[in-house]
Computed example of a mutant assay.
Amino acid sequence: MLKFVKNHMESISGIEIYPLISLLIFFIFFVVLFWWVATAKKEYIKTVSHLPLDNHKNQIEL
């Protein structure tokens, strides 16, 4: 089965670019994510980090 898949993949022209594109998308995503975290304002991080704990303030009492 693996031999069939390998032979089939080799018959597709230009397929060698797809792993490179995937790696590039992966790398760019994490670079942008790191940049966003590094430049985020400390007040925003503090506010967002307390959201799960502040749930009781947002509930409507019936």
Rank of each mutant, 00 (worst) to 15 (best):
G14C: 01
F29D: 04
A40R: 04
L51A: 06
M1S: 12
P19H: 01
N7I: 02
L20E: 15
K41R: 06
A38Y: 10
F4S: 05
E43M: 01
F29P: 01
K46N: 07
F4L: 02
F34A: 09
H56I: 03
K3Q: 03
L62V: 12
K6E: 13
L53W: 11
W36T: 11
K57D: 04
Q59G: 06
W36Y: 03
V31K: 00
P52W: 12
L33G: 13
I12T: 03
L33D: 06
I60W: 10
I45T: 04
L23E: 05
A38E: 11
L2K: 04
K46E: 10
S11P: 02
I21R: 00
E61L: 11
E16D: 07
P52G: 00
E61H: 03
M1F: 08
F26T: 10
M1G: 09
F26C: 07
L2A: 07
M9W: 04
L20M: 15
K57Q: 11
H8E: 12
K57W: 11
M1P: 14
F29A: 08
W36D: 04
L53K: 12
Q59N: 04
F29H: 03
I45S: 10
E16Q: 13
L2I: 14
Y44I: 09
E10S: 15
V31C: 05
N58G: 04
F34C: 02
I60H: 15
K3R: 05
F29N: 02
V5Q: 01
V32S: 01
V31H: 00
I21T: 08
V48D: 14
F34N: 04
V37T: 02
I28L: 06
I17W: 02
N58K: 03
W35C: 06
H8F: 08
S49L: 06
F4G: 02
M1H: 12
I21D: 02
F27T: 11
E10W: 00
W36E: 05
H50V: 02
N55I: 09
Y18L: 14
V48L: 06
M9N: 08
V5Y: 00
